[in-house]
Write a protein that binds this DNA or RNA. Structure first.
Length: 264
DNA sequence: GCACTCGGTTATTAACATCA
DNA sequence: TGATGTTAATAACCGAGTGC
């Protein structure tokens, strides 16, 4: 595999190749977070002793919170690994405002090289309603990547006894953001919706007119249209994305991809 | 008849605008 | 100035329709 400086110095940057490099980086970071940060800093006692929120507003809130902490932990590990490999040559910095994207990958003069948006989903949640809803026209095909992780509660054992649980990342992938956006917009077209600048409109049968998307555009399970799940022309990126969905589906209360024989 | 799909509703928060 | 209203963002859940 080429080194990162090689990939970034090519006259025409290839985001697919760069994502492959980052996938390897991500896999190692996930291992570290699962082994250290998560069981040490995000652990809690068993559900019987320390229950999780059940109120739906609280559910939404705590999942967002854990997602943010996992973002912090993962990006910190990724930055550390990059530092181990290339010294002070690169930085993975947070976007400090609530804006697209979450992270900027920069060189040592702080020049922007890549942009990374991250989404964390709890497999136990009803819909994994996290959304990649960045308007297509704001996505830079050469620089933007989407980082997805799936997590679930894992028992924490001590001397053969379960003493608590911690968020365990069981799947993670980095993909070209524009490829995902492309598939997302193919789906929108299939469902008779349309894009006007930064606005997304869906056709409402009830009102017999186009209405602003009510907040479903880009939900992870609404990116590949179901009629395209097994399409021949799925790009490599979409196949990797589908693989990620399958991993989440494995632990999800639902069985949306039909690859589970029994309930679990 | 169950489980999924997909447009839609709701709860909550924060920022900002408007009104008495 | 303080109370109230509006809007935007997020992610939960809802429910009619649909397919097996």
């Amino acid at each position: 595999m080429p080194t990162l400086p090689e990939l970034l110095s090519q006259s025409k940057s290839d985001i697919e190749e760069i994502s492959e490099y980052f996938n390897e980086l991500l896999a190692e970071s996930i291992q570290r977070v699962n082994a250290n940060f998560s069981p040490q800093r995000l652990s809690k006692r068993t559900r019987q002793v320390e229950p999780l929120p059940t109120d739906k507003r609280q559910l939404s809130s705590y999942r967002t919170r854990i997602g943010t902490m996992l973002e912090y932990a993962l990006s910190t590990e990724m930055n550390a690994i990059i530092k181990e490999r290339y010294g002070a040559k690169y930085l993975l910095t947070f976007a400090t405002a609530h804006e697209y994207p979450d992270f900027y990958f920069r060189d040592d003069t702080l020049t922007l090289l890549l942009r990374i948006e991250m989404k964390a989903v709890d497999a136990e949640s009803d819909e994994q309603a996290a959304r990649f809803s960045t308007p297509t026209i704001l996505i830079d095909a050469d620089k933007d990547m989407l980082l997805l992780i799936g997590w679930r509660w894992q028992d924490l054992e001590q001397d053969g006894e379960i003493i608590g649980e911690f968020p365990y990342i069981f799947a993670g992938v980095i993909l070209s953001a524009s490829e995902i956006a492309k598939e997302r917009d193919v789906r929108l077209e299939i469902t008779k919706g349309k894009i006007e600048g930064e606005k997304v409109l869906v056709y409402s049968e009830k009102k017999r007119e186009f209405v602003p998307d009510p907040g479903n555009y880009g939900k992870l399970w609404r990116i590949i249209h179901r009629t395209r799940l097994n399409a021949e022309d799925l790009s490599d990126t979409i196949r990797k994305f589908k693989h990620f969905l399958e991993a989440v589906d494995e632990y999800s209360p639902r069985n949306r991809l039909g690859n589970k024989d029994d309930e679990n």
